[in-house]
């Protein structure tokens, strides 16, 4: 083969590698989600499985409830500011959203916890944050969070702040 043809052949192969690596960058997205699912990390929007529901009456944990709407025309607040539970005890709290915009809006809530490491002991069986919420103009909705505090919660933790932030999901349910 002539040098020119050989050069062309090698450059084509290298170009295929480059294009393949561009695809590989995108393939990392499902790969990352699979790994997180397999290792059970980063599963904010999935119901937790609670194995042992034995209640530890010797401890009391204060759950402080917080709510934020991030650039969203929603009034979003918990019906109570805090509840006191025993570890292992099943409890339900309610939040209320009011859509004050004259059009339907879709939002997604993302939870966060303080202290951060208490998050893995706050087991949610049901939560409005598992799905996107679409509210019609002026609609008022009450939504529950059902949870159990894992009895393995470290002894030093007496208070868990649970904070939900709603983000608008653009392009759905009428963007202003």
């Amino acid at each position: 083969m002539s040098l020119k043809a050989e050069n062309r052949r090698l450059s084509r192969r290298l170009a295929v590698v480059a294009v393949g690596m561009f695809g590989f960058g995108f393939a990392l997205v499902p790969f990352y989600n699979q790994i997180c699912a397999a290792l059970g990390i980063n599963s904010l929007a999935q119901p937790d499985v609670v194995a042992n529901t034995q209640v530890d009456f010797s401890r009391q944990i204060v759950i402080e409830l917080d709510s934020n709407a991030h650039n969203l025309p929603w009034r979003f607040k918990p019906l109570v500011s805090h509840v006191t539970v025993h570890p292992g005890e099943l409890a339900t709290v309610e939040y209320e959203i009011v859509n004050v915009r004259g059009a339907a809006v879709t939002g997604q809530a993302v939870p966060s916890y303080g202290p951060q490491h208490a998050g893995e002991y706050f087991k949610k069986l049901e939560c409005f944050c598992f799905t996107q919420q679409t509210l019609a103009a002026g609609e008022v909705r009450r939504m529950p969070v059902t949870f159990v505090v894992d009895p393995r919660l470290p002894k030093g933790v007496h208070t868990i702040a649970v904070s939900y932030t709603f983000f608008e999901v653009a392009g759905r349910g009428g963007k202003s």
Binding site: V19, M21, F24, G25
Partner: peptide, 13 residues
């Protein structure tokens, strides 16, 4: 050749 396309992918995302 192996990693510049990955950066291109990240900024494209």
């Amino acid at each position: 050749v192996a990693v510049m396309p990955v950066l291109a992918g990240a900024v494209t995302m």
